[in-house]
Design a binder for these strands. Structure first.
Lengths: 354, 354
DNA sequence: TTGTACGCGTTATCAG
DNA sequence: CTGATAACGCGTACAA
């Protein structure tokens, strides 16, 4: 008998049909108060027949909370936005919280517009995401009435909470893995040094090599673009200037793909002659590389989930701030060869001896 | 003097500070009624100082419209979701409409849950997106109280409105382009035939070749996976069984990438010996292919924009239904060589002579 | 020109 | 056990 033509059915109509008052309907449907079982059943039947769906709008107005949050993608949608958004939406959706999507496309004005819009919709909190980890100006000049979390981007204000992958530790993972594979003459082909991630990954790499007493001359660090073409170019340069290199850690899987292609076409075997490790663990890219690429995974979906949980904690009243780094993990495929030593790469303690 | 600590400023507090009544505040801020200029200014100043932001919740409750829509990604987030979502969000955000993001991850139960959630939030409409164009069951058993548009997916109900790329026309574009380049011995390497898109692209290709009197034996149609590995395998098979092929139209850029790699490694020159056209125009993939890949662009962002506009029309009362196909366009790069004939590929008329 | 009161849909409180 | 009523924040007729 469900009409369905309009969900504009109100609690009054349910009350009428059930022959009770609105208060009774509310109690019956929400299990509050003491009601006769027969009454509850009658109300439920009426609600079902009418296709009654309580208005979250009215509830929100009353309770002062909307159970909605804003997702402000400040820097347009990139590849990382997919797992990040998935993680956030997953963690929030399970908790019955709806997500408002806002893409500011890197425009400050648009961003401010969205912040005001979200506040006017009375969101309980805001998650800001980006596609780089470098510090950025906060979305608010003054204190906002709701908590904010920065995910995969960093607010330049230390009062804000920012969640980032641990690029330093990711670089360490790669370094330990390659050392454990018996490699000693490493090279690093990476992206533009203006990226904080580029600098931190290199530092992580270097820290492990230093501890192990393995040298890494500056001539074996090549910084360029985030492209396959750069990977090919850098690999070519390495082959001619540092032909004794036995392992290459790349700043991204895209770069690694270019490196792999160049090596293969130059007759260098991967991983026999040169072991290869990428960064990002971009499945479609890592799997298509020949041979399949060992890579560092930033677990971005997990980072999104954590961001959601942190925001919920702040909504509950917790005062969180500062930068929180989420550990990367190593995903081993064929490009880094078989183990020649015990592989310590999964240990997180930077002081772990080799 | 903006406190900013709480946006919970109501119209009453503004009225108090300005020394007027709430009705006057409303009129002053919305420009309704006849108010003394001095009063308007005083109210505006009070609102500004208090950081007053009218509650959309209260407004929505009153006016019966929320200016929100639900974006139901039924089939999880894929690569196509990025431009699609961008287009939708762009077209809607400009119209001051907020978007609720819901990812059902291909789960029917979760999808139903989200539909109910969206209705309880009183969205004005729903856009359903997917990652394949094959017909799917509608999200509703009975009539919904709000309009629904299916974007990059098709509802199996003819009463619903579905927006799809014109894969048939896309196949025609590729065929005309290759013919215009002087190629006559074409091959087609594509994805699984269970995809409607695969069948339609092939039919488009075939229709143009038939019209031109160019043969396309079944042995030159190879259907497999959406992977580079399949592209390489298929290219290898083509080289041994149909070595005289002078052009390959691929069902996706990924496949085309595999084909290009295999050809190059076999010493076949692209485009001199074999011209190559992909599908999807996935920038990062097309640009990294050697040589850069000519491809068919489905203009998914435009499709998203159109979906948003259609939904708005339906919200305004228009009754739309059926399947609407959006034209693809050709993006020429190096892999298809230079023109040898006048290039008619951009013409949309299927009956255009060669 | 400005103030008052009602209604939007729901829940909670208190009276019956 | 159930019903009436206030309250949430806003816009808008209508009254002053």
């Amino acid at each position: 008998m469900a009409d369905g033509s309009m969900s504009r059915v109100t609690i009054f109509e349910v009350a009428d049909l059930a022959g009770v008052s609105v208060g009774t309907v509310s109690k019956a449907l929400n299990g509050r108060g003491q009601l006769r079982a027969e009454t509850v059943e009658r109300v439920r039947a009426a609600a079902r027949d009418l296709g009654f769906e309580p208005s979250e709008l009215a509830k929100s107005l009353l309770r002062g909370r909307t159970f909605t949050v804003g997702l402000l993608t400040s820097d347009s949608f990139g590849r990382f936005s997919i797992p990040l958004t998935s993680g956030i939406e997953d963690a929030l959706g399970a908790g019955q919280i709806s997500v408002f999507l806002c893409d500011a496309r890197g425009d400050r004005v648009r961003e401010q517009h969205y912040v005001r819009s979200l506040l006017s919709r009375r969101v309980d909190g805001i998650i800001v995401t980006g596609r780089r980890t470098d510090p950025r100006a906060p979305i608010n000049d003054e204190r906002l009435p709701v908590p904010v979390v920065y995910a995969y981007c960093q607010s330049s204000s230390p009062d804000d909470l920012s969640l980032l992958p641990d690029d330093y530790q990711g670089g360490q993972l790669a370094a330990r893995h390659l050392l454990a594979r018996g490699r000693r003459r490493l090279a690093h082909v990476t992206g533009p040094v203006r990226f904080a991630a580029v600098r931190e990954r290199e530092q992580g790499l270097r820290s492990v090599l230093d501890t192990a007493g393995v040298e890494l001359p500056a001539s074996r660090i090549l910084a360029g673009e985030w492209t396959e073409a750069w990977g090919r170019e850098a690999a070519g340069a390495l082959l001619s200037q540092n032909p004794d290199v036995d392992a290459i850690f790349c700043g991204s899987d895209i770069i690694a793909r270019g490196v792999a292609d160049e090596l293969r076409e130059a007759g260098i075997r991967v991983p026999e002659d040169v072991a290869l490790v990428g960064f990002d663990n971009w499945e479609i890219m890592a799997a298509a590389t020949r041979p399949p690429l060992t890579s560092i995974d930033m677990n971005i979906e997990g980072l999104g989930k954590t961001a959601a949980h942190r925001l919920l904690a702040m909504i509950r009243g917790d005062a969180l701030s500062g930068v929180e780094r989420m550990p990367c993990r190593l995903v081993v495929r064929d490009s880094s060869g078989v183990s020649t030593l015990r592989d310590l790469s999964t240990e997180h303690d930077p002081s772990a001896s080799l």
